[in-house]
Design a protein around this nucleic acid. Structure first.
Length: 296
DNA sequence: GGAGTTGTTCCGCC
DNA sequence: AGGCGGAACAACTC
């Protein structure tokens, strides 16, 4: 579920909390999550390294670590996919499973799906919780990890200053696919998934099935503005917790209350009152208003 | 029991 | 060639 605003929220939190910590150990119970190195080698390769900085690229969380001199010598890449959460706190093992001991913010379901833990040198832990076990973790020399397709074959960051409307148009207008699919393609533009693409197209009044190459410059401009506005607002509200998103301290994001289109099929359009529609694309559903978002 | 659920890649069909 | 649907990853909710 996490898209750009959720992942950025996590990255901002981690930068406040775990920079300067050293990795003291690793625990896991689902080796398939660890793509590189071999799961059995992760602990001996990462133990003792110091966390220097956390960045984001698309929906990837990038944790840079060092042995001291080169501050970005090693990279731990984490992609949360559909149901992953990164949680920072203090767990105890019960029946061979990590359990958060407190009654407060993490006493919910999220912590019962923890499959990987990084123990830190301050006694706290960074834990990966993942109900559906799609999340992945890759660790190695930064130079090597940065060359992988995960980071290399990814489109521009929509919130970067350098991402101007002209760049957006040149990227989108040659595409022959439906605009909804193009917006969700990480190779075209980074960080947008099913939730925000529905919100963006509703705000821009563009039908999700419009071919990208049929869009006029003024329509593309509206989409561009909606992308910036919606992602920025969602980021301010610390993301959307429509199913289960939690920040590293287990708190939900607040943008869920602001959603105007996502999952609103059958409900009245909040602009014109007409009943919203829902359609399927590539196994994913998209909600839109058939009056506001006309298919030409 | 069946359909639907957030991300991404890949495969086979047109 | 390239768009598209479906599968795969896995496990839950409605």
């Amino acid at each position: 579920m996490p898209e750009l605003p959720e992942v950025q929220t996590i990255v901002d939190d981690l930068n406040k909390r775990i920079v300067g910590r050293k990795v003291a150990g690793v625990w896991y119970d689902w080796p398939k999550t660890i793509k590189k190195p071999k799961a059995t080698d992760l602990e001996k390769e990462i133990r003792g390294l110091k966390i220097e900085e956390i960045k984001r690229r698309g929906k990837n969380i990038l944790i840079y670590l060092s042995k001291g001199v080169d501050k970005s010598a090693y990279l731990l890449l984490i992609h949360l996919k559909m149901t992953g959460h990164l949680l920072y706190g203090n767990w105890q093992m019960k029946n061979n499973k990590p359990v958060f001991p407190g009654k407060g913010f993490l006493s919910e379901k999220v912590n019962s799906y923890i499959h990987l833990i990084f123990y830190l040198d301050n006694g706290l832990e960074l834990a990966l919780s993942d109900l559906r076990k799609f999340a992945k973790v890759i660790f190695g020399p930064a130079e090597e990890i940065e060359k992988l397709g995960e980071l290399h074959k990814i489109g521009p960051e929509p919130l970067n200053q350098s991402f101007k409307v002209g760049k957006f148009i040149s990227l989108i207008s040659p595409q022959r696919r439906k605009i909804k699919q193009v917006l969700m393609d990480p190779k075209v533009i980074a960080g947008i998934g099913n939730i925000y693409s529905d919100e963006i197209l509703w705000q821009a009044k563009i039908h999700p099935l419009r071919s990208a190459n049929s869009l006029k410059p003024e329509e593309l401009e509206k989409i561009y503005k909606s992308i910036r506005q919606i992602l920025e607002k969602a980021l301010k509200l610390r993301g959307t917790s429509v199913s289960d998103f939690r920040d590293p301290l287990g708190k939900p994001g607040l943008y869920g209350k602001k959603l105007l289109a996502y999952r609103r099929g059958g409900e009245p359009c909040l602009r014109c009152g007409v009943k919203m529609k829902r359609l399927k694309m590539g196994g994913r559903s998209s909600c839109y208003c058939s009056r506001c978002q006309i298919l030409k």
